[in-house]
């Protein structure tokens, strides 16, 4: 395995149901994503984008195949780790369509929650959180509740939260869907910058053609398999 490889998927299959009710969602998907890359995952609705994202994120169990995260094979026809949640906690950051911040925690607590669950001391977790908040230019909002922030600010906090545990991979599910054009571009630029500066692989599910030019590659689910397209290709959405 290449040392720069962040995600490697080999012959991945996902079926739902069985016999007459069998639904084949993903068939023999194989691909590799390098650290520092931003890859857009596109497909029509219901084609299996979220399912693929969830399999890579160790949330949904595939039917068969192999998944590597960094140097570790985490799935080979079954989960190889007892605690898949630990893998998520330590290696993966999630960004959602909406910010989905915990409403009863303030900005700082939202960002430090996961590192503290990873046994990082509260002091170190807060130091890292303030670095991220300054990076995203919202340090003055550290003690605000999410209800006191704008949509764009909340999304920046959500990205900061995803980065708080120093993940190797970020899985983003339509992170710009709820944002206007300017903010959407600003977020994808931010993700691109993070990918390069922090050597993080990012897969972002999107239907938004405004952000495709900022991605390194475009991965499309076609006929239940994975096809890569040039980022400048026209009419692929």
């Amino acid at each position: 395995m290449n040392n720069q490889s962040a995600i490697k998927v080999k012959n991945l299959v996902k079926n739902f149901g069985k016999d007459d009710n069998l639904v084949r969602v993903i068939e023999n998907a194989s691909f590799e994503i390098q650290k520092g890359e931003v890859v857009a995952l596109i497909a029509p609705s219901g084609a299996g984008k979220t399912t693929l994202l969830m399999m890579i994120g160790c949330v949904i169990e595939p039917t068969s195949g192999e998944i590597w995260l960094g140097d570790n094979m985490v799935y080979k026809n079954k989960w190889l780790a007892k605690d898949t949640r630990r893998i998520r906690r330590e290696k993966i950051g999630f960004i959602f369509q909406a910010h989905y911040l915990i409403p009863f925690l303030n900005v700082l607590e939202n960002i430090t929650l996961l590192p503290q669950a990873n046994n990082v001391s509260p002091k170190d977790a807060q130091k890292k959180a303030f670095e991220l908040l300054e990076y995203f230019e919202i340090a003055d909002k550290a003690y605000n509740m999410s209800s006191q922030l704008s949509g764009g600010q909340n999304q920046r906090v959500a990205i900061a939260r995803a980065l708080a545990n120093n993940p190797e991979i970020i899985l983003a599910d339509e992170p710009t869907a709820a944002l206007d054009g300017e903010r959407a571009v600003s977020v994808i630029k931010m993700l691109k910058k993070i990918a390069v500066e922090q050597n993080v692989a990012i897969i972002t599910v999107t239907h938004d053609d405004r952000i495709l030019p900022y991605c390194d590659r475009i991965m499309k689910i076609e006929n239940r398999g994975i096809v890569f397209h040039d980022k400048d290709a026209k009419g692929i959405l």
Binding site: G57, I87, R89, F94, F96, F104, L114, A117
Partner: peptide, 13 residues
């Protein structure tokens, strides 16, 4: 439930 699902997804024990 939404927050609990998010916490579980993020990997909180």
């Amino acid at each position: 439930m939404k927050e609990i699902a998010i916490m579980k997804l993020m990997g909180l024990p």
